[in-house]
Design a protein around this nucleic acid. Sequence first.
RNA 1: GUCCCCUUCGUCUAGUGGUUAGGACGCCAGAUUUUCAUUCUGGAAACAGGAGUUCAAUUCUCCUAGGGGAUGCCA
Length: 467
Amino acid sequence: MTVVTRFAPSPTGFLHIGGARTALFNWLYARHNGGKFLLRIEDTDRERSTDAAIEAILAGLQWLGLEWDEEPTYQFSRRERHAEIAQQLLDQGKAYYCYASKEELQEMRDTARAEGRAPGYDGRWRDRDPSEAPAGVDPVIRFKSPNEGATVIEDSVQGTVTIQNEQLDDLILLRADGTPTYMLSVVVDDYDMGITHIIRGDDHLTNAARQIQLYTALGWDVPNMSHIPLIHGPDGAKLSKRHGALGVEAYSDMGYLPEALRNYLLRLGWSHGDDEIISTEQAIEWFTLENIGKSASRFDFDKLENLNGTYIRQADDAYLTGLIMPLLAEKAARPMRDFDTQLVQNAMNGLKERAKSVISLADSAAFLIAERPLSMDEKAEKLLNDDSIQVLQRLATRLEVLSEWNIDQIEAAIREAAESEDLKLGKIAQPLRAALTGTTVSPGIFDVLEVLGKEESIGRIKDVNKT
RNA sequence: GUCCCCUUCGUCUAGUGGUUAGGACGCCAGAUUUUCAUUCUGGAAACAGGAGUUCAAUUCUCCUAGGGGAUGCCA
């Protein structure tokens, strides 16, 4: 049997971090088994679904490198089919029309809660004759769910979960306006799409019981189910915008590499012994449902950042250069030229050693394409003006020289200063670096000297500044 | 309120009826790097609490506490 998984987001917002992990797990499971990974956009809520959200989700998945198979399915386009199944259940006496008003429903909830019973619809139209229907009320179609016994969910992650049927009320299949609800659509679509394995957030666990009842009523096989724990914010509370409930594009904007985020997400709730750095190939080879944990995990930016640094250090120079050139162009407010790119790429090997994000990588490369003389950032300025260190004063007086990028002179100045003051170069390295790059968040001093020291590079910089 | 799920260092996690309870991030200390970063070495740091089963429980059972989820004509 070919494994078929799916990711089924509702397009009411961006692709958030939890959704991204769900997608990743589905993708990994499909690839591990040589199966298919399908995408279904659950847009049956016409009020809240937007095209912008659909685009953001697709873009997010692409950025993460989670390629889906076949064309995405748009759930709303299948509403006829959903209605057909609802009608079938109606014909079979497994569903019925309900005319209860919103007020009645609210009242039912209130009294149920007050009496300590399971809340929900009390089934007052379940066995009533349609001739008693009030005039002018568009009915909904409800599923006649079993009142007795229990529904058992055999979950690959959660284990066996039993829900008493009396806890579950008669869910709505078709709304008053004739559109299908989520509960009906998922079941029908998963069946029609041939989904063999459902992997989704455990906020759907209770829904799973209701859906199993539907599968049973329809005589369909229940797919294998895995309800994975949710991701929480650093404080343990539900993920909010302040934490990680950002769209994946926000992570891209923050300078995280997709491969780093993927690796991080994979390790959140899944493990393979002590392995931490896991390539995509290894992930596909190793991924199984058994290794998914059952408890919720917190989002930890420190670890993500560390992972990101690791991936940046391993990354190809040209690849990284390609990523930061647009950022540099923005910073410099001018288009980048071939020699700018070449210069940055030459320096990349040294630069990437100390970068934790694509953003900081761009920051540390900025001096390479900056206009001369440099404009200092505040911190750099302060360092250079700190009169508690004599050497700095000397260097500061030579700033004109420095700004002309005469490497020989710079080196001579450094050595002279260091020797005459009997200081280690280390002591003046920080301010020196500030002087050379205009900022304190720049690369190592020797990397700076090395790159700038290349006659060729210097020539190019001068050319740039003249034009 | 009712139902369901979860609980190993601060965080992500490994693990077993008998282990010095392992790794990673972060933190601290040291080495290397004439700065920073990288790298390396070392260190502090955990089985939520209480019963029970057992020769032996972190591991099995129950209870409590804490956390999370569900409880929509949202998905």
